[in-house]
Write a protein that binds this DNA or RNA. Structure first.
Lengths: 203, 203, 203, 203
DNA sequence: AAGTAATCGAGACGGTACGTCAAGTCTTCCT
DNA sequence: AGGAAGACTTGACGTACCGTCTCGATTACTT
């Protein structure tokens, strides 16, 4: 599912084949050596393809990397509909943590951030990509509000950022340890809030 | 305050002078052109210094960048002691948002992240740097707990990440708009919690 | 009048048309930018034709260039028959000098030499071409011998080379100034000979 | 004796060494494969030197080729002073013919012409080079005039061109066979003149 | 008039070489 | 003696053309 080029089927089968081997090679290099390890010449050699063929299909290295990254990803997580918000959020965050730490594509994550940093178009693609990936959280929270499980005045956008932000922060910025169990700590703190319950004591 | 080399006063005044002009040039390039814009040759030329001289003082580009970044920063924020937790947190987060978006060194931030990505030693330095920068939040929360303003069982580490994580996430990852007013939304959501008051959140 | 392909009339009008626009475009590029400026891709683009079409009709760039050059040339000079040898030779050499310096196709001349240098088949074509162009000189000299105006033992081949050689030499090799008046100097020196009249030259 | 760069002794022995191996490799390629066979990458590989090193010392391929050509040449021919003009001229022309056909550097000659064609600066160098090489002819003729062996009104410049021009013409342009014996034919025709003896030459 | 064959454009493909930039190393010069 | 200067090898950049190769889409010529 190419994103940066026309999505309709390529006529020339050579195109299809070239795109595939190039993305495959890029993804491998991405995982093995990160952003800096993805050189056009390296990709060309590993894919058994001429440099020009790569440039023919991708304008910038960043966009190639984005496409390769996307081809690595499993399809978007399913909607969370267990009806138990806490469990749903923890499940999803655990998935995110795994994705950022132990998954096949984990080593490619900072490369992607870096690509976004260099190429505004890629940064837009990343944004779109994340919005789509956030949808399950968004739905889960919205439904919980409708069920009365969450306060009606909950700030959904801030909430989304407060759930996933800490994960990304630890992975990319502070590089503190990031175990799956961190999911529960964030979700519980998120649900409970920090302030004491004058009327209703915390807990 | 050099971090990567012996902190005691350098004897040779030439060394002192070289270090200064190199850091100055690096910082300028960092701001103007980001991580990729900082080349050793570029720094050498702008600083009017030979490449060798740079390599003599810094082992890697990443460490040079870290040092330059640090020389850009104003000294750590003061302790927050207004006694009003919400106001303190908002004040601090606003500062962080400004730092990441409009400050002089804002353009250098992703360069720093990127440097951390390439050089584990730098990533450790960034971590230490952030821990120190986080101290005011840490104190503010701890004192609020002691004052009874925050629940005793508050998860301090998770909380710190939930306050600053969303900011970094928006700045570096999703690149959503990031206005100062976002500080209030995060702090309020953090304090209030998401769960409705009537029932206790699932535990 | 194609030389490198079957000279009989092409049946398909598409072929005729393609050949024409390609030669036209080649000639233009040849004049504008010389041998190195004639690239197959450039010709294709200027002619509004696919590269394949060019390769279909010419096996090598050199031969394309030769054909284009020939299409540029006016038909061979007429026989020189004024009966005055000196005037005839001067007239013809002046024409050659103009052709090599100020004519429309002058800029293409070294391209042609160069093409001959790379492609033996072209070099043969150039040779044939020159022989044909030399015919007027050849006749003029032969008739002058018959008229008794030139010595019977004149070395005709050497003479031809001694008349045109200096022109080409100045144009291609030494690049000394080459004015039309040079024609007279060469012809006079040629007729008169260098040796003094009193003694016979060494034999 | 470098011509295109400062003639004073290079300080850094690395420079001297680099120049030498590069010129050597260029000369070899020039002889083996002509102008088109001299690629910077090819020279670099054969010389065991980095491309950048070549670009550091020569601005263009043409100038590199000229320098290599010059390093190939034996020093200029000695003055011709046998006192016998005919013998002297024949001797010199035979040398030229050998140089253009069977010498070590013969295959490089058209490359040099081609280089001159692309780079005006090289064409100037070639001109200067030829003027110097022509000096022996020039002297021989002048002295013969003084000795009364040649007519006082001989056109020296035209004569020079009429002696060497035919050789170059056959070698580069018409590519007719070019044996050493051609030297005599040219010299004799040159001395004797074409016009019949009975009357004074046409005029 | 229909069918088939020649010819076309478009452009992907694997290549080679270009000339440039920057990396990090190493040698020489100079004070 | 040690710093500055800068030559060196290396490797990648992105571009231009090369000559070959599918791939339909027109023609043009049979029959």
């Amino acid at each position: 599912m190419p994103i940066l080029t026309e999505p309709e089927a390529a006529r020339d089968p050579r195109v299809t084949r070239s795109r595939a081997v190039i993305l495959q090679a890029t993804a491998e290099l991405l995982i093995e050596a990160g952003f800096a390890g993805v050189t056009i010449e390296g990709v060309a050699e590993r894919a058994g393809v001429a440099k020009t063929t790569i440039y023919r299909h991708w304008r910038t290295r960043s966009q190639l990397i984005f496409d390769a990254f996307e081809s690595l990803m499993e399809p978007s997580a399913p909607r969370l509909t267990s009806g138990n918000l806490r469990a749903d959020l923890i499940y999803a965050l655990r998935g995110l943590i795994r994705g950022l730490t132990v998954s096949r594509w984990a080593p490619a994550v900072s490369a992607l951030i870096e690509a976004g940093d260099r190429d505004p178009e890629v940064s837009r693609l990343v944004h779109d990509f994340l919005v789509e990936r956030m949808a399950p959280f968004h739905h889960a929270i919205q439904e919980a509000v409708e069920r009365g499980e969450l306060a009606k005045d909950v700030d959904i956008d801030a909430s989304l950022n407060m759930l996933t932000g800490p994960i990304y922060y630890r992975r990319l910025v502070s590089r503190e340890p990031l175990a799956e169990s961190f999911a529960e700590r964030v979700v519980d703190q998120f649900l409970r809030g920090a302030a004491t319950r004058r009327e209703e004591p915390a807990r």
